[in-house]
């Protein structure tokens, strides 16, 4: 039985040390909800990209983690928000390889591929919020335990 305790949290994103805590929290929350290793890795990687964008482009902000369930499926929803400059051209920002700085421009588009649901809310001058959700998909597998 997987438990949702310890999944919900709101973490600050103000320094690269905070990125470490965000990754650690997402890893633990995903494991608690029963995500498999590959899905945990995808989620943590997506969270790392989005949290770094919040820090680097948004000037800092926070991540809220939430346990969601729908028709018997368990999921993890993460919201990254900042009050930075916002994104003027979302389509451009979401294209592979576009960066306004010295990055690879793969963070936002790559994170979108790594999660099941991806929503972005941004306008120039009003900050950016990115919400992502992943669902635990349980393939049939042999019983655990010895």
């Amino acid at each position: 039985m997987h438990t949702a305790a310890g999944v919900e949290a709101c973490l600050p994103i103000r320094s690269d040390m905070d990125l470490v805590w965000v990754r650690q929290h997402v890893r633990q929350a995903a494991a608690r909800l029963g995500f498999g290793l590959v899905d945990q890795t995808k989620l943590v990687t997506a969270a790392s990209e989005l949290a770094r964008n919040t820090l680097v482009h948004g000037g800092g902000g926070q991540m809220a983690a939430q346990h969601v369930s729908s028709r018997g499926s368990q999921g993890l929803r993460l919201a990254f928000s900042d009050e930075g400059p916002g994104i003027a051209d979302l389509e451009l920002a979401l294209s592979d390889g576009y960066t306004s700085g010295g990055g690879l421009g793969m963070g936002l588009s790559g994170a979108r591929r790594l999660v099941h649901d991806f929503e972005i809310d941004s306008a120039p001058g009003s900050g950016t919020t990115v919400r992502v959700t992943c669902w635990v998909v349980r393939p049939p597998r042999p019983r655990e335990g010895v």
Binding site: V38, T41, K42, T45, D96, M106, S109, R113, L114
Partner: peptide, 10 residues
Amino acid sequence: AVAITLVELG
């Protein structure tokens, strides 16, 4: 798991 994720990330 890292290899799978990296490729998906692009």
